[in-house]
Design a protein around this nucleic acid. Structure first.
Lengths: 359, 359
DNA sequence: ATAAATATCCAAAACGTTTGCGGTAACGTT
DNA sequence: AACGTTACCGCAAACGTTTTGGATATTTAT
């Protein structure tokens, strides 16, 4: 049924070698022959069988992307946007994207081992980097290429793109201080994640800058979900001396926090300030619109993918480590309600901060 | 470097045939030999190369899932949850999930053709069904298995799971009528989608039930995104005789609508009622919590996947078409603000409505 | 004892494509 | 004409695994 290279060769009275080499652009096939082959292959609808190419070339032209689930529901818009970026770049590069969604620990390990051992993908994109990341050691040992969004303390030479969460949160604290807040809480995430440490450090930097003492009672741990933010905020608001501002480690945390505050009868923006990190779409549409530290997730997805494919194909990377500056977007959740509402300004995306080296 | 079946055979002084047949459980290999083979393969870390198996068996054990993008940002939580369900089931069945994110029209067609022609996947899961769906015709003609979430008018024998959006919206209208609303608007989606027609029909059914005349000025088209809902609602609220209730065709539309209403100074729940369809997590965390018609997206993802794999493997399906009843979840966005707030009730998931035939 | 049946292994081919290297015709130089 | 070079094609092997059907030793039945 499907047309094979043998059919094309027979049709043209050529060998399969010649057809293959012609289609691949080898210079030892006459140009006139080549045109004939291309024409016939198109007319006959010939497309190489992926499995055969994979086997012969020892390449799958597939990228692996294993998403972590940290709760029972996987609905983090961050990952959808990231995946869209990755997906667009894999398509552009004639690669495929193989996705798996697993919970950390053994299921995750099993997944990676299965994909590596069966030579299912040419490389991986890693997300949610950990300070000590077993994936890096494992993939390096197996000689499997990978690129990451975020860094780890595990020594590695793999390419990565990070966003300076430390500086971003520091700036956010600065903004809150400038709004008059001095009792600022921070809802974090599991301590093994790099982003947890970085953003907590940024929080502390910001307090230092403002000459505000660090109070450990104002730091709670969430799990990067709305529910985590909601529960931590409930706890904070029950305190004798509740904070007047809350920073959620990511937008989902901050959105959960917003909900808890509103359920307590607080007016977010007037009675309490709440801010997040990511700049997901839901943040700009929330009520009130959420102040956040924006990172261009879609574009990062694309660029990580470029880095990985460049590595897989053995080409040189102009830069192996990129650290992007995020941008603070101030919206109503950290501003007094009486200020005028300018929706157009609130919706603006930041000017891009990418160096042009990956374009 | 990687261990091949030849290495195992040599190690045991057996042929590769015997090793292969032993691992595959063929009954013409002695049990003692089989145990020896299994033990050695494990100790040597042998895992079959996927490409070789694919080529020989003409099977990739991969499911294709092509997500549509209707806007510039792909962040619909609906698809994350669906994909999680699909991903979990593919893992369980020892399949892989190949994901592509493309915009409708030519890019989508190119993607399907590429995946089909290169025999890249064993079958597809289709989402966002259209009344006239070229994908059904194409895949049927190519003899490629597929299962769908939702139905189409295009004749086909493929298995599908649908949710009765017509009945769900009808019930929602009934609820709004019972709250005293008679001027109810409906923000739809592109007319080629099956869900557009079904849910619009449900809206009209509900109006008929209540003896309310259908007013075409109260029906606008969105695009299933927050922005679509936001803009349509802006338009509706500028009317001389604005509606007192708005149904968004999906939760994102309703969330955008909520934002537009709030920006106009309306109190959602008291001044205007807004409701959606899906039951995504963001709806229960919105302010106010959104009334919605709930469908269990994750579980649907899993079940569609079971249907497809059952088909691929040539087994009989107990049922080829399933139509689930959604459940109305009433929250604050359609109730007067003075009513008591019961967060626990608002968070409750509906009892499951699945027939047990797919369990 | 002989013939038939069974258990259990293995050679070879299959899957579809790509690649290295050789064969040979044509062309260019002496 | 003879020799060397180039153009351009094709044979055969490779990739790793699975499957078909045959070979042969052992067991069972007559």
């Amino acid at each position: 049924m499907p047309v094979t290279i043998r059919d094309v060769a027979k049709h043209l009275n050529l060998s399969v070698t010649t057809v293959s080499r012609a289609l691949a652009g080898h210079d030892d096939v006459a140009e006139s022959t080549r045109q004939r082959v291309i024409k016939a292959a198109q007319e006959m609808g010939y497309v190489p069988t992926h499995a055969a190419r994979q086997l012969r070339r020892q390449r799958t032209e597939t990228i692996g992307l294993v998403f972590p689930t940290l709760g029972s529901r996987f609905s983090d818009p961050f990952f959808s946007e990231f995946m869209a970026g990755v997906g667009d770049e894999t398509s552009r590069s004639n690669y495929d994207l193989l996705v798996s969604v697993t919970s950390p620990g053994e299921p995750e390990q099993t997944t990676y081992q299965r994909l590596v051992n069966s030579r299912r993908v040419d490389g991986f994109i890693l997300v949610r980097m950990r300070l000590d990341d077993w994936r890096i050691r494992y993939l390096s040992q197996q000689g499997v290429p990978f690129a990451s969004f975020g860094r780890s303390q595990t020594v590695e030479n793999n390419p990565s793109i990070g966003v300076d969460g430390r500086a971003g949160i520091q700036e956010l604290v600065r903004h809150l201080v400038s709004m008059g807040h001095s009792r600022i809480a921070f809802i974090g995430a599991p301590a093994d994640l790099t982003l947890s440490r970085d953003r907590l450090n940024g929080y502390q930097d910001g307090l230092d800058d403002a000459g505000i003492d660090f109070d450990p009672n104002l730091v709670l741990q969430g799990n990067l979900t709305r529910t985590g933010g909601y529960e931590a905020t409930k706890t904070l608001l029950e305190r004798k001396s509740p904070p007047s501002a809350i920073i959620g480690i990511n937008d989902l945390t901050a959105l959960g926090s917003t909900r808890a505050a509103q359920e307590s009868g607080l007016i977010v923006g007037r009675d309490i300030a709440i801010a997040g990190f990511d700049g997901i779409e839901a943040s700009e549409h929330s009520h009130p619109p959420l102040t956040t530290v924006y990172q261009p997730v879609y574009d990062i997805g694309r660029k990580v993918c470029v880095m990985l494919i460049t590595q897989i194909e053995g080409r040189e990377l102009p830069q192996t480590h990129l650290l992007l500056k995020p941008k603070l977007i101030v919206r109503q959740s950290t501003m007094d309600r009486d200020l005028p509402v300018h929706p157009q300004n609130d919706n603006s995306e930041p000017e891009t901060y990418f160096p042009s080296s990956l374009e």
